[in-house]
């Protein structure tokens, strides 16, 4: 120590060469490349969607695609066949998607919010440690399992219940798919909302309780209003997940493109139709196949918009307390 403490010019080494520079730049380059893969793939997917969708719109006008109410994308085997032209009106698919997502949100919002409030405000540490992981297991169940649960357990149950009270229920009903999808997105809502509620400062609870408010009053009048932007964000994220969900609807909602608001009818969704259009051997220049890309583009834009707004809401909320 004493030797070093003296100012000997040879101890003061600063020209150690390029070791740090080369190491740093290799690392930096690797990281740039890795992140470029993600960006590149995204751009690639969007481009392929757009290019193929444009091909499709050359065959079917975009106005017909967006505004016509009939969907039956069969292609003719012979040119003189009846109904040789497929019908590519996306509206029944869109309403089907919305109907199922709406049912899912109606199921998931109260369940998810109530569990989030319970976890954040009422649960003891012990029960929180048990319940939170259980909810997260729900999020880890593969959607195909939810799918056959919906198709083989819930749908027959609804049909049976319906017929016993004299209602006619399709064997593949929007209700069955929506209910199960609702259960699937509960953990998404509860976990995000729980985080948001926990982010409300303890000082707010103290202030309210110190004024003699009950816990319920505190939650209703202070905590929820403060957390509502974040909760709205979590609901929007859950909705966009529901709209893009495929497996459950393929298995439980059916393929009949009915334009209906009746949850007991069979409906189909954008995702389920894309699966149907692209399974099996396909000609890649037929309107039927190309329509999958147009559907994909539409779905992509819808969920992109939802995600964009939900992230903005969540971000705006975060700025309030940081």
């Amino acid at each position: 120590m004493t030797a070093k403490a003296q100012s000997n010019p040879t101890d003061f080494i600063i020209n150690t060469g390029n070791r740090t520079k080369i190491g740093e730049s290799i690392l930096k380059l690797t990281m740039i490349l890795c992140s470029l893969v993600a960006v590149g793939v995204t751009i690639g997917i969007v481009l392929s969607l757009v290019v193929e969708a444009i091909e499709f719109f050359k065959k079917i006008p975009i106005t017909e695609f967006l505004f016509s109410t009939e969907w039956s994308p069969q292609t003719a085997l012979r040119t003189d066949q009846v109904a040789a032209e497929g019908k590519f009106g996306v509206i029944p698919l869109f309403t089907g998607t919305l109907l199922i997502s709406a049912i899912a949100m109606v199921v998931a919002t109260p369940l998810g919010l109530a569990s989030a409030i319970f976890l954040a405000e009422y649960a003891s540490k012990r029960s929180r440690d048990v319940i939170k992981p259980m909810l997260e297991i729900l999020a880890g169940i593969p959607t195909v399992v939810y799918g056959f649960f919906a198709a083989l357990t819930v749908a027959p149950f609804i049909r049976w219940t319906g017929s016993s009270v004299g209602l006619e229920v399709a064997s593949e009903s929007a209700l069955a798919a929506g209910l199960v999808m609702g259960i699937m997105i509960v953990p998404l809502i509860s976990s995000l909302s729980d985080d948001v509620i926990n982010a409300v400062p303890q000082a707010m609870r103290d202030a309210s309780m110190g004024l003699g408010a009950t816990q319920a009053e505190t939650i209703r009048q202070v905590i929820l209003p403060a957390a509502i932007p974040g909760i709205a964000g979590s609901l929007l994220l859950a909705a966009s997940r529901a709209i893009g969900e495929t497996m459950i609807v393929v298995m439980a909602a059916g393929l009949a493109a009915n334009l209906t608001a009746n949850p007991l009818d069979a409906v189909t969704t954008i995702t389920a139709q894309i699966v149907a259009l692209l399974t099996g051997d396909q000609e890649f220049d037929s309107a039927k196949t190309l329509s999958a890309f147009a559907l994909g583009l539409l779905l992509f834009m819808a969920t992109l918009l939802l995600n964009y707004f939900s992230l903005r809401i969540v971000k705006k909320y975060r700025e309030q307390y940081d």
């Binding site: 400062p201 000082a203 103290d206 202030a207 309210s208 110190g210 004024l211 202070v222």
Partner: peptide, 15 residues
């Protein structure tokens, strides 16, 4: 608590 009010260390007005 309605009879015994409290003011805290850090100002904590509601938003």
């Amino acid at each position: 608590r309605s009879q015994v009010g409290m003011v805290f260390q850090k100002p904590n007005p509601f938003p």
